[in-house]
Design a protein around this nucleic acid. Structure first.
Lengths: 333, 333
DNA sequence: CTGAAAGCGCTAACAT
DNA sequence: ATGTTAGCGCTTTCAG
C-alpha cells in the first residue's frame, strides 16, 4: 500500500504546521495548542506515519535497544529456561518502549565484535547471561554501558546482577532430605563453571554441615545439566556408595536421568532413595513420578533484569537482586 | 574509558585523510590506496572507533535488523522449541551481519504497535511465528516488508514460509504403528489452531486411510501440547475405546502425559499399547521409556527462516520450504 | 505557543 | 584514487 516512506515533513505540510510542532506533538510536549495537536494527529493517522527510529536515535543518542547477550557455548538451548527468560525480558522491555536485541555469541573468548556491537551508541544497555569470564563485560561497563548480569559474577566484581536464590534453594532441598530421615544424602552437582552450579553445590554442603553431617567427597558427582549426565553421575554415585538413601540433583533434567538409573537398579523412589531436583521444569511432571523440586521464577528473573537495566539507563543505580526459590514437596522426596 | 564518542571525522583527521576515504575503508572499497587503508585502520584501532549504526541507517535506509515476532498468546514458552529456534535465527542472522530483534506480542488482535515497529525503515525484515490470524502479516507484506512465516499459513495466503514436515512425520509415525501390528490406532492431536496441530492430525488420517483403515472419530482426542492435556486426552480415549493398541501423540510432552495414564491403568507399553510422539524432545528420554518419536530440526528451522529473509532483503524471491522429519524408533513403539 | 535553522554521523554522488 | 558536498529524518536551541 504505502510504499513511499512518509516523513515528519510530510505530516507538517499536510497539517499546515512546522516540522518542529509535529516533533513536539510526537514527543508529547504540553505547550502545543490543542487544535494543532489534533490536526497533527489526524494527519499522522491519515498518512499512516511512524517516526524513523534511526533519525531519532542519531539526534537523541538513545537507541531504544537493549541487548540480551547469551553465551553460545552454553549449548543448553533445549532447556526451557531460555524461552522463558527471553520472554520475560522482551515483555518487560516492551512495556518501557525498549526493544530487545538478541545476541547469541561465544563469550568465553575476547570477542571484539561483541564489544563493537555494544559500544556506546549502539544499544542503550545490555543483559548478560551466565558468563564464563567477566573481562568483556567489565570492559563494556567501564565504557559506560548500563548492564546487568543474570547469574552471579565473581565476588570481586562490581557488576550488578539478578539471580535466583540457588544457594537457598539447595539448602532447603537438602534440609528436606535430612528431615525426612535420609542419612546418606548425595548430590549430583551441575556445571561448576556456572554460578548456579557452584551455588547449588554450596547449598548442599552448607545444609549438611548445619545438620552436623560431615562432608563426604564420595557423595558428590558432577553432571552438565543434561539427563544423560545425570544418569551417569547417579551410576557413579551408586557404584561408589550403594548405601545412598537420598540425593539432591542440581536440576530436573539430571534428576530425570538419575531416577531412570535408580529404577534400572531396582531402587524405590522415595522409599529407598529420595530425590529432589531443581527448576520445577514442566511442573515436576518430567519423569514417571511427580518430582519434588525447587522452583525458580525464570520469567520473573528476565523481567527483573530488564527493569534493572532500564533503571540504569535512566541514571539509577539499582542494587543486585536475588529472587527467592521455593521447595515444592511432591512424590519423590 | 573512552567516554567521549569518537566519530568518523575524528578518524579522518587523525589519519590525515577525508571522511569519504574513511568511509570507503570502513566499507571495504577496493580503490583506496593500501597505505591509506593502513593509516585509517591504525587510527580506528588507536581511537577505538566503531561506526554509529543510526547514522549509517539513516543514509542507507538499511537497519541491519530483522525482527523475530512471537505470539505471546502461545504461552508455551516453557517449550524448548523457543530457545532452539531463536538461537538458530540469531546465529544465522549474525553470520550475515544482521541482528535479531525479539518481539513477543499478542498477535491475535490487530495491533497497531506491531505494525508501527515493523513499518518500512524500522527493520529490514521479519520472521513471524505460528500466527493465529494473517491480517497483520499480510498488511506488513503489502507494505513491502520482507517477511517469512515459521509454520504454515492459510492455503490461500501468498506468504513465504518454512516449516517442518509435520504431515509427513505424522504419516510415518502412524504407518509405523500400523506396520508393527496395531489394529486400533488412536491419536492425541494438538492445538488445531496451529498448522502443526492440524497437519499432524491430517497425517494420521491419511496414513490410516492409505492402510485401508476407515476413519473412526472415537479414536481421536485433542490436547493443547501440555502433558496434562495429553494425560486427559489419553484417559478419554481409553474410556471410550479400551481396545486401543497404538497411539500417535502429536508431541512428546503430551506423550509423556499419555504414558503416565497408560501406566496408571496397568497397560504395558509397547506390548499392549504402542506410543509414538513428535519432537524428539530431550532425545526421547522424557519419560521412563525411550520414546519412539518424530524428530524435527528446530534450530535448522530457525536458521532457514533467517537465511530466507536475508534472501528477500537482498531482493530474492525464495520459495517456501518444508524441512524433512525423521521417525526415530525406540522403545515405545 | 510556534517557526527557522542548525546539526546528529554517516554515505553517495559528483568532481577532480 | 581521493576530496567536496549534500543530504538521510529527526530534535532542539534560539528567536519571535
Amino acid at each position: 500500500m504505502n510504499r513511499t516512506k512518509i516523513t515528519l515533513a510530510d505530516i507538517a505540510e499536510s497539517a499546515g504546521v512546522s516540522p518542529a510542532t509535529v516533533s513536539r506533538v510526537l514527543n508529547g510536549d504540553p505547550r502545543v495548542a490543542v487544535d494543532r495537536v489534533e490536526r497533527v494527529n489526524r494527519a499522522i493517522q491519515e498518512l499512516g506515519y511512524s517516526p524513523n527510529r534511526a533519525a531519532r536515535t542519531l539526534v537523541t543518542g538513545k537507541t531504544g535497544l537493549v541487548a540480551a547477550v547469551i553465551d553460545s557455548n552454553l549449548n543448553v538451548f533445549a532447556d526451557p529456561f531460555w524461552g522463558q527468560i527471553t520472554t520475560g525480558i522482551s515483555q518487560a522491555l516492551q512495556e518501557a518502549n525498549f526493544s530487545a536485541l538478541l545476541m547469541v555469541r561465544p563469550l568465553d573468548v575476547e570477542d571484539p565484535s561483541v564489544v563493537a556491537s555494544l559500544a556506546p551508541g549502539q544499544v542503550d544497555g545490555a543483559i548478560f547471561f551466565q558468563l564464563h569470564n567477566d573481562d568483556t563485560v567489565n570492559l563494556l561497563q567501564d565504557m559506560g554501558l548500563p548492564l546487568v548480569v543474570v547469574g552471579r559474577p565473581d565476588e570481586s566484581s562490581k557488576l550488578v546482577y539478578v539471580d535466583s536464590d540457588n544457594f537457598g534453594g539447595a539448602v532447603k532441598a537438602t534440609e528436606h532430605l535430612v528431615q525426612r530421615g535420609c542419612r546418606r544424602v548425595a548430590t549430583v552437582a551441575g556445571n561448576q563453571q556456572l554460578s548456579s552450579g557452584r551455588l547449588r553445590l554450596e547449598g548442599y554442603r552448607t545444609a549438611l554441615s548445619q545438620a552436623g553431617v560431615p562432608f563426604d567427597e564420595s557423595l558428590v558427582a558432577y553432571g552438565d545439566w543434561t539427563d544423560e549426565s545425570g544418569a551417569a553421575a547417579m551410576r557413579a554415585l551408586l557404584d561408589a556408595r550403594p548405601d545412598i538413601d537420598g540425593v539432591f540433583v542440581a536440576n530436573d533434567l539430571m534428576a530425570l536421568g538419575a531416577m531412570s538409573v535408580l529404577e534400572e537398579r531396582g531402587l524405590k523412589v522415595p522409599d529407598q532413595v529420595a530425590v529432589v531436583g531443581f527448576d520445577n521444569m514442566f511442573g515436576g511432571r518430567l519423569g514417571r513420578q511427580q518430582l519434588t523440586t525447587v522452583e525458580q521464577d525464570v520469567q520473573g528473573l528476565g523481567a527483573k533484569a530488564a527493569s534493572m537495566v532500564i533503571q540504569m539507563i535512566d541514571g539509577g543505580k539499582p542494587s543486585s537482586v536475588v529472587l527467592p526459590t521455593t521447595l515444592l514437596v511432591r512424590e519423590t522426596a
